[in-house]
Design a protein around this nucleic acid. Structure first.
Lengths: 233, 233
DNA sequence: AGGAATTTGTGCGTATGTATC
DNA sequence: AGATACATACGCACAAATTCC
């Protein structure tokens, strides 16, 4: 019988690097020291360090360039979720913006899938536009334990960026379930899908690195304006 | 100027294994020889072999079990696409079956995205069921150059399996676009979504290892019965 | 333009830990 | 408990890509 050991060294290293990036020690595109130097400083072999870096590369947090160096990707990790699931104009693309409609904190509805440990959650309602056109009505539920307080200013643009920078929360896993649903009664007049009262609805459960569910969101999509795209490679 | 060298050894090994699986030398779930033995037989180091096997694991073609062995996944590679995009009963899961409605070969509609090089394509129409309930109406377009002839018997169950076994075609990349659409006029009476005449429609463009688009499909989903699920990790 | 220095990629061999059988 | 098999970790050598002078 033996005491359970710590995590593998390469996991410790990648987690440390992720914390460093999250703390702002590395900006987007920053180059890491050469592998041999880094390994020496960390007191591990180059092989072990490389395993940590390769894992991060696979997660989309790092870009390796032979002969050049290893480069941190921060804004891009946000894209690692969006590059798989995204909403775009029917013609393709579209510049995304978001308008905060409401922000409050309430008890979680019982019929939602489990996310986080708290009884309460933040509820964020936004109208997302593509090239100025209302395209998606969004309701995000973020576990109340994640943050003492969220202010509207925090939610100006990229939520995943806010999660990572302020909450030290990296969304690395997500599942969307798509159905046809009725538009919610709090829908603003500017959001007006016209397939009767029905529209496409994506329900997303997001998980952090640890695999724990931390966020649940509902996204009503106006299919007259936009379409939902999922891609795997 | 120098002659272009061969591919890395670990790539050669994984490609060889993929060919072997494709040729039926390994059945689903088959266990590979121990790594040390395999490395010896192949004349490479265990490290190099392990890199090949790890790559295959990431591609979903192999399952590694510590202390046990390395196991081929064939039906499961089909799942590597389906594990990201899938249709399941609203209650979850459901045993999938497929009923062939029509199979013919015609010229590609001009408004489709480009796939394959031929002017003609096979058009396969199927009704997919979950636990016997009609859930998805499917129209698959496969480039005519891929195969001299397709017989209905080929299409009994898993199309991806047929692609891989008969056409030596591995689907490794796919993109779905979801909208709300009208049910096609060739819909059988048993498929009857009741959100007016509209239902959820997923349009999928699939690509092979080389990155070339080879298949385009349309999937009308009865959201009274089933839902579409996309997952990334 | 070209060559040297730098940096990552590939590959080998070995030792030890841990899970499975 | 022992044997087997994969996981982790180390160190080294050379190849290939990039960068810099």
């Amino acid at each position: 019988m033996s005491i359970k050991n710590a995590l593998p060294v390469y996991v410790q290293i990648s987690e440390m690097l992720i914390r460093d990036v999250s703390a702002g020690h590395y900006l987007d595109g920053a180059r890491l020291p050469p592998e041999r130097q880094m390994a020496k400083e960390l007191g591990v072999s180059v092989t072990t360090l490389r395993k940590a870096l390769n894992d991060m590369t696979h997660k989309g947090m790092l870009e390796k360039r032979q002969g050049s160096g290893n480069y941190i990707k921060t804004n891009k990790n946000l894209a690692s979720v969006y590059s798989f699931f995204r909403v775009e104009l029917i013609a393709g693309g579209g510049l995304p913006t978001a308008e905060l409609l409401a922000l409050d904190r309430t008890v979680k509805p019982t019929h939602f899938p489990a996310f986080g440990k708290g009884n309460e959650a933040y509820r964020i309602r936004r109208l997302r536009r593509l090239n100025g056109q209302p395209a998606v009505l969004e309701e995000i539920w973020l576990d109340g334990n994640q943050s003492a307080q969220i202010r509207p200013a925090d939610l100006s643009e990229s939520l995943y960026l806010f999660y990572r920078k302020s909450l030290n929360l990296w969304i690395t896993e997500a599942e969307d379930q798509l159905t046809i649903a009725t538009v919610p009664e709090w829908s603003p007049a500017t959001f007006d899908p016209t397939h009767g009262e029905h529209c496409l609805c994506a329900q997303r459960l997001s998980r952090s690195q640890s695999g724990a569910a931390v966020e649940f969101s509902l996204n009503w999509i106006d299919t007259n304006v936009a379409r939902y795209v999922a891609r795997i490679k």
